[in-house]
Amino acid sequence: MTAASTAIAAQSALDVLGTRHAYVVFALLLCIGLYMMIANPNLVKKVIGLNLFQTAIFLLFIASAYVDGGAIPIVPSGGGTGPYVSPLPHVLVLTAIVVGVSLTAVALALCIRIYDEYGTLRVDTLRELLREEGSLPARPDLPGSEPGSDGGDGDD
């Protein structure tokens, strides 16, 4: 009985991978993008991670629009016979891509400004430089650091 239910569970897991692979890829891409943003010390690679994160969402919308055997949603005059894939998510993704491109442009412009100013794109080096310049509060564990340093800047 248990073996049978395990077999069914394995079967359905395989089913999910076989028929819903787009959603699995969506979740994977989302996590990879998020991980890159958190773990990678290079600012440009953080921006790439951000792009990956957004691309995953585009995939979610596109995958949800797909209808098995559906045609391109252009209805000829006189009306065609369905089924068509849903055009609405495609339009949404187009808009989201435009938003994503503008964000990437602003992010890269800021990266260029930071590189011009400090000559580095690595977050750890950048933090040291900002501390030396006094733009960031001193590290909490250093002697003489002010109690006001919040130490909460670790999750970007």
């Binding site: 989302l30 998020l34 943003m37 600012l43 953080k46 921006v47 951000l50 994160f53 957004q54 969402i57 979610l60 989201a96 964000l103 602003v106 992010a107 800021l110 990266c111 400004r113 930071i114 011009d116 100013e117 400090y118 950048l126 900002l130 310049e133 733009s135 800047d153 970007d156």
Partner: peptide, 25 residues
Amino acid sequence: RSGASAYASLKYLVVGTVGASLYLV
């Protein structure tokens, strides 16, 4: 146009975009 404000802004950009993207999900 200072370096410190660019860094603060980029930090906000990454976090804010993740926020908006989660909303979109």
